[in-house]
Write a protein that binds this DNA or RNA. Structure first.
Length: 809
DNA sequence: AGCACGCCGACT
DNA sequence: GTCGGCGTGCTC
């Protein structure tokens, strides 16, 4: 038997299977989807088995060294999916495969050093070297890297030692798995034998008899500490029984349960509204018989989409199939998880970034072993290794975070379609503001469209008032709060109602500028201004992490009039306190939510009424549901509008709608105040009227006229290098070749400097292909990209390819 | 990507 | 005469 293996070499020309013989001893374990370690040239690497074969064309095959898991971590479906991802996103198959497994299973390589007998006997004339050998002797095998760190001369001593046969170095292929085990005690003999033993034990062994009688009554394994506590016996007593052969001690693998000790209130089933029932019936049509059934629910905020998800999920489980629910990382709140845990209990695995790597691994294994029926998580949960998937839900389908911004640059929406087709499953997208792509597909009849335009309990949509900030300025109001916002805040403070203040920080962060000469503090390594962080009085680059302390004098002209500008949440907080003395502000941003659990804590505080205002950025825009909030202020509604991105209007509309949805979800009527310099813009006007349909019509017209998605597809190529003339030359060469192979009707734009022209001292140039939705162009382009790898090796120019980019930076 | 092999300059 | 620079090419 031969295994075709994709090895862990992250370049394109080795991204093909290599054949290895499977030794008889490993035969039962090597399957498609197995992780193996294999010899590769002089090295030892991890790889994935993608195929098993009876024959090979290779003359001198080597053998698989080891299988790393008893159960293969990947299914055949995943292996096939990786092949598709590789072709679609122009990434290596290895990168695709690796993205499907939890981080702890990603390979780690370590060189281990140990001594031969000659090394043990070796005595060096040098004291330091002698100590070095002693060090290894005491700890062997010891990590190569650790030695290099500790002994400055280690590198040369190691080479000497290897040559002289005193030292052996072994390459270890491993992972980061730490299996947590618990010790359990269990009966080692039959129940009858236990009863006999209990009688036969001498009277003096009263404690031992107690233990035995426990096992007679509960003939099962029990956690050791629990047993000792329960019967108040000592370890000695138990040990005596083990020595006599009646009991047995066993190490059992234990799952870390991140929700241990928490109970979940069962979720009451409310009767469905007519709309909910209609949608449920419609989607159910796609479940019987099982078929690929793509659906889009366009449901206004508060229309009760979640109840629909729960019901469809329940029906899927009743069919004996499994379900995945994807939510944006940011709305993966305990509140939300509780609703699903409350309904489906321990049939749910939850994967989110707040879990430790080990916890994530445990949740993943529950899925892999079929111990749960539902997986909930952010983007990467789309790879939940279910075998009989019946339903995939993408909540907030339009969210940008479903696109991975590193290789492999996949979109969870696309992967959901692939998996839905494979499993003949229902794929359900839900949003109050569907992406142009999805709604367009729905209009063309490719996706079943369901509309929910009524809020549960018929709550009215909040009243939205647009405030023209230019007007305010003309009237001499230079603050960041308009007159009507100030009045509204005062009103809510008097009524003791709560408020949410939203500041969209993208492209609007605090920067430091000199008022005398106009100098703006920028990053010396990136073409971007530094962001001021008040908490530690530093300037930081958001791209490379470069940090410097706050300047007191302008480095250009020496003036003292250098200070921070712009509107960060910190500044808004200060201004709020200044305008409204005594106001209690709970601020949520990267600075205040860094610690684990801080995020939840702040929201809990707000819910308990410990704050009047919840102030924050994107992270407060979604899913939060506070009964006492009656005012939402959007301080700069148009700050997303002027970004160099064809999705700017769409994003603005989505954001305003999301934020507005935070107000008046319960008994009290909600109000939204939108401050903007762009009152006329259709995205702002239509968002204020909750009019998605008209927005769609207007925006799709723009996309059509300017030929942007969904009327075409995009591929973004970004070149980076320290040397501008070189990069320009190579980018133009590449563009020339591209132009030759793209079909008529496709366009090539650029190359031009990227919007952020330099990051970490590397200059960035980009070009973009716009093509009709014809996937046949991809293989040709991928060939060109592969060929560019030669160029990268020679010149060091890096090329990244982003298929269906979400960000144009 | 590594790592070895291989063919030309500055040292013992 | 050897150590070592990094160009080239291969890895089942």
């Amino acid at each position: 038997m031969y295994a075709r293996v994709i090895v862990d070499v992250p370049v394109v020309d080795t991204d093909r299977p290599f054949d290895y013989a499977v030794p008889a001893a490993l035969l039962p374990f090597v399957r498609v989807g197995s992780r193996v370690s294999v010899p590769f040239g002089p090295r030892k690497l991890q790889g994935f088995v993608i195929e098993l074969a009876e024959q090979t064309d290779v003359d001198r095959v080597k053998a698989v060294l080891d299988v790393m898991d008893i159960e293969p971590p990947l299914t055949e479906e995943m292996v096939e999916l990786a092949r598709k991802m590789s072709a679609r996103y122009m990434c290596t198959q290895y990168a695709a495969l690796q993205s499907m497994i939890p981080a702890v299973l990603r390979s780690s390589y370590e060189k281990q050093v140990s001594l031969t007998s000659a090394g043990m006997a070796f005595e060096s004339g040098l004291m330091d070297e002698q100590a070095f050998y002693q060090h290894i002797k005491n700890r062997q095998p010891i990590a190569w890297d650790a030695l290099i760190k500790q002994f400055p001369m280690a590198a040369s001593w190691l080479t000497d030692g290897m040559k002289a046969g005193r030292i052996i170095v072994e390459q270890i292929v491993g992972d980061r798995v730490t299996k947590k085990t618990v010790t359990v005690i269990e009966p080692a003999v039959s129940l009858e034998q236990l009863e006999m033993a209990k009688v036969e034990l001498p009277k003096s062994a009263a404690r031992q008899k107690e233990v035995l009688s426990h096992f007679v009554h509960h003939y099962a394994a029990i956690d050791q500490p629990q047993l000792l506590a329960l019967l108040r016996v000592s370890n000695q007593t138990v040990k005596a029984l083990i020595d006599k052969g009646f009991l047995r001690r066993e190490e059992v693998e234990n799952y870390r349960d991140p929700f241990a000790g928490r109970t979940f209130a069962p979720v009451e089933k409310h009767p469905f509204t007519t709309q909910q029932q209609t949608v449920i019936n419609g989607i159910s049509e796609g479940m019987n018989p099982p078929q690929y059934y793509p659906c889009l629910i366009h449901g206004v905020t508060g229309s009760g989409k979640t109840e629909v998800y729960l019901e469809i999920m329940e029906r899927t489980i009743e069919q004996g199939r499994e379900a995945i629910l994807l939510v944006p990382e940011i709305s993966l709140t305990p509140q939300m998880v509780n609703r699903f845990k409350g309904r489906f209990g321990d049939q749910v695995a939850v994967m989110h970034s707040r879990l430790s790597q080990g916890e994530r691994y445990d949740e993943w294994r529950k899925i892999r072993r079929g111990q749960v029926k539902v997986a909930i998580g952010a983007r990467s949960a789309i790879f939940a290794p279910f075998r009989n998937l019946g339903l995939i839900i993408l909540d907030e389908e339009h969210e940008g975070s479903y696109k991975q911004e590193e290789t492999p640059r996949y979109h969870a929406r696309t992967i959901a379609q692939y998996r839905g087709l494979y499993h003949q499953a229902v794929v359900l997208f839900g949003s109050a503001t569907p992406s142009m792509e999805s709604y367009h597909e729905a209009q063309r009849g490719r996706i079943h469209l369901f509309t929910m335009d009524e809020r549960v309990n018929n709550r009215p949509m909040p009243v939205v008032n647009i405030v023209d900030m230019r007007e305010e300025l003309r009237e001499g109001n230079r603050t960041m709060f308009s007159k009507s916002l100030v009045e509204a805040i005062e009103d809510r403070l008097a009524k003791q109602e709560q408020m949410v203040m939203f500041l969209n920080r993208r492209g609007f962060s605090t920067f430091v500028m000199c008022r005398s000469c106009g100098y703006v503090a920028g990053c010396p390594h990136c073409d971007i201004s530094l962001t001021y962080h008040r908490s530690n009085r530093t300037l930081r680059c958001h791209y490379c992490g470069y940090t410097e302390s706050e300047p007191t004098l302008c480095p250009e002209c020496g003036s003292e009039h250098i200070r921070f500008f712009g509107t960060g949440t910190q500044k808004v907080e200060e201004e709020l306190s200044r305008h409204f003395p005594g106001i209690r502000v709970i601020r949520m941003d990267v600075d205040t939510t860094g610690r684990k659990g801080a995020h939840e804590k702040l929201l809990q505080d707000f819910r308990e009424g410990k704050g009047d205002v919840l102030l924050g950025t994107q992270m407060i825009a979604k899913g939060l549901d506070f009964p006492n909030v009656t005012l939402v202020g959007v301080l700069a509604a148009d700050s997303t509008l002027n970004l160099p991105d064809f999705r700017a209007a769409e994003r603005t509309f989505q954001l305003i709608t999301q934020v507005g949805g935070r107000a008046g979800r319960h008994e009290k009527q909600g109000e939204v105040i939108l401050q903007t310099y762009n009152t006329e813009h259709y995205s702002i006007q239509l968002a204020s009227r909750h009019d998605y349909s008209t927005f769609f019509v207007e925006e799709i017209k723009q996309r059509y006229e300017k030929n942007y998605p969904p009327y075409c597809r995009l591929i973004l190529f970004t070149f980076t290098h320290e040397n501008v003339p070189l990069i320009v030359k190579k980018a133009e060469q590449f563009a020339g070749k591209l132009r030759q192979i793209i079909p008529s009707g496709a366009f090539l734009l650029g190359p031009v400097a990227s919007p952020i022209a330099r990051i970490k001292d590397r200059y960035r140039f980009q070009c973009m292909v716009k093509y009709k939705n014809d996937p046949r162009v991809l293989p040709d382009i991928y060939r060109l990209v592969r060929a560019f790898d030669d160029e990268r090796k020679k010149t060091g120019i890096m090329l990244t390819v982003d298929v269906d980019p979400q960000m144009m930076m």
